[in-house]
Nucleic acid binder design. Structure first.
Length: 276
DNA sequence: GCTTACCTGTCG
DNA sequence: CGACAGGTAAGC
């Protein structure tokens, strides 16, 4: 999906477009993506509520309303696009959330993995799985905190750990591989085997990669679009992800393996597997 | 840990 | 046709 940078770009793009706007009655074309409350109840209780401010935690987008929180998760192929000139063409439009005045938010998702929730307050976070999230890698996790979290999971391999949203949140497959490459760390290293210097380097690499991703408007490998339907450009800056067979800067050939059940790209020379 | 499942599409 | 795709939950 959209990982942290893509969701953040959507959040930033959406904020000036929808702040203060009042929802009208939703139109639901595929009820399965409305996770809570029931689609019927959502249609009944959303109208009249106003957007206060869009926020983000990990890969979740949270629209804080004057009453309640409208939460989105885009998973792999979800899109959340704002439109004011009628319906943007697309075969996989599942929910249309009109504002009074004619503009609307359009939620579409080819693979139907994504979803949305209307929560009345933070006590309902568990309904959306929001209670399980670890510290957000951009907003919450500091370097010392991150390093000490790694120390609590010495036996875990570092890539699966970074992908675990309960450990820290926001990283997905692309930005994890890019971060590990920048830090020069093999994805299968045990967290406990990282030196203090390596752990600090990893933290700073993650932050830098996420910020670069945001600055580029996110990564559009295929489906991702921002709040206005535009593509990102970080795909042009990826050092290893999706580049198996190409040359690394060091001259070695970028490899693809499988770690944690995910396609994993790395430079076998820059990212040496640690002993043990 | 791993595999499978969810769903639709693209690529070789 | 099979392999794979930005994510995650569930079941060994």
């Amino acid at each position: 999906m959209p990982e942290l940078p893509e969701v953040e770009v959507i959040r930033r793009g959406l904020a000036p477009l929808i702040r203060g706007k009042e929802f009208d009655r939703p139109r639901i074309y595929f009820p399965g993506v409305v996770r809570h409350p029931s689609p019927e109840k959502l249609c009944r209780i959303l109208p009249g509520r106003r957007v206060r401010e869009p926020a983000r935690k990990g890969k979740y987008l949270l629209l804080h309303l004057d009453r309640g929180i409208l939460v989105f998760h885009l998973r792999m192929t979800g899109r959340l696009v704002y439109g004011s000139g009628g319906l943007p063409a697309g075969r996989h439009l599942h929910v249309e959330l009109p504002f009074t005045g004619g503009s609307a938010l359009y939620f579409s998702d080819m693979r139907k993995f994504g979803g949305l929730w209307l929560l009345e307050n933070e006590s309902e976070y568990p309904l959306a799985g929001l209670h399980r999230l670890g510290l957000d890698m951009l907003e919450e996790a500091g370097e010392a905190q991150f390093v000490s979290l790694l120390r609590e999971r010495p036996r875990s391999r570092v890539k699966p750990l970074l992908l675990d949203q309960r450990f820290v949140c926001g990283l997905g497959n692309i930005y994890t591989d890019e971060s590990l490459f920048r830090a020069g760390i093999h994805p299968c290293r045990a967290a406990g085997s990282l030196s203090a210097a390596e752990a600090g380097r990893l933290y700073r690499a993650i932050r830098a990669v996420l910020e670069d991703g945001i600055d580029c408007g996110g990564t559009t490998s295929r489906d991702y679009r921002d709040a206005r339907g535009e593509r990102g450009s970080f795909q042009d800056r990826l050092a290893v992800y999706g580049r198996a067979g190409e040359k690394c800067r060091c001259g070695a050939t970028i490899a693809r393996t499988v770690v944690a059940g995910r396609g994993t790209y790395l430079c076998p020379r820059c990212q040496v597997r640690g002993l043990k």
